[in-house]
């Protein structure tokens, strides 16, 4: 019996980690192309608002998720126009995107506050899902979890094994050389940014469709920023994103359970744990990473074609 509870706890950890995995894997691909999109929080919250609106109006979780992804893509396209088209400083543009997304999502979602939907059902594979101890954990999650893991596997293969992935990494490491080789630097970066937007939108969609099945303004609560930190934590390597996200999901769940059990620590301190953990993770990994410089070399630099 206790092992069944253990499995349920692990499943909540996976649930908390999934939006982080989704947003972080998209940002990872974007950053490998040399684009630092600090607007993840803004894209994610737009995805959350529009996914809920779409799902509520159509009654379909799938269509809702697609709305969320499109919202993320639209925001990323705006970011691409600013930073890749107009060569605007990426940090400033990312902040603008987050401020804009926070406001616009509140405006668009205003009519949906307080409404509720049912969570999507979990996958059920006869036999496998009923296995004791691990069946639910591995074969009975909701569909988004499998999409998240599929995206990580796909991104890992794409970046390290495909020709296009190699071109993308070249763009992120040295855009002048990539340009000299005839690679379409700006197009590659724009598409990478759009992929990041779709993932962030899907991450937001997960929050309103499966995690808390309702919409409230500001509900991403810094998850977009934590996803950005996870990319650094993962040293820009896809599978490490999963590890990092599960650790964060674990920390989040631990503090929730600690609050529920009222162990005497102030609730605010426990709520601060994910943010403090992010800082600690950044510090630990940054000091290690400096030795073998894993960040894409041209990260955050605007490319202006020489003539």
């Amino acid at each position: 019996m206790t092992s069944e509870i253990f499995q349920l706890v692990l499943m909540t950890v996976v649930t908390a980690a999934t939006p982080l995995i989704l947003a972080a894997i998209g940002e990872l691909v974007t950053e490998r192309a040399g684009v630092l999109n600090l607007g993840v929080e803004g894209m994610m919250i737009m995805g959350a608002a529009l996914a809920f609106a779409g799902a509520y109006l159509t009654g379909s979780t799938t269509l809702g998720a697609i709305c969320g992804m499109l919202a993320g893509v639209a925001m990323a396209a705006l970011f691409g126009l600013l930073t890749i088209g107009f060569a605007i400083n990426q940090v400033a543009a990312g902040l603008a995107l987050t401020i804009f997304g926070t406001g616009l999502s509140g405006l668009l979602g205003a009519g949906f506050v307080g409404l509720k939907r049912d969570r999507p059902g979990h996958v059920h594979i006869p036999g496998l899902s009923d296995l004791p101890y691990v069946g639910q954990l591995f074969f009975g999650e909701d569909i988004f979890v499998y999409i998240a893991f599929g995206l990580v596997a796909g991104a890992a293969w794409f970046l390290s094994r495909s020709r296009t992935g190699l071109a993308l990494r070249a763009t992120g490491d040295n855009h002048q050389s990539a340009h000299a080789l005839g690679l379409p630097v700006r197009r590659t970066r724009f598409l990478a940014a759009l992929f990041g937007g779709a993932c962030a939108g899907l991450a937001g969609a997960y929050l309103t469709l499966a995690y808390t099945p309702f919409w409230s303004p500001g509900m991403t609560a810094g998850r977009g920023w934590i996803a950005l930190a996870l990319v650094v934590f993962a040293s820009w390597k896809p599978w490490r994103v999963v590890l990092g996200a599960l650790l964060f999901g674990g920390a989040t769940m631990l503090q929730l359970h600690a609050q529920a059990a009222s162990i005497g620590l102030p609730g605010q301190l426990l709520s601060a744990v994910p943010y403090l953990a992010t800082i600690v993770a950044l510090v630990l990994l940054s000091s290690g990473a400096r030795k073998n410089a894993t960040a894409p070399a041209a990260l955050g630099q605007a490319f202006i074609a020489p003539r």
Binding site: A93, I99, T102, G103
Partner: peptide
């Protein structure tokens, strides 16, 4: 939220 969205748009316009 309108104010916040407007502020975001303003920042983008300023950067352009």
């Amino acid at each position: 939220d309108m104010t916040r969205a407007f502020q975001g748009v303003l920042l983008m316009c300023v950067l352009i």
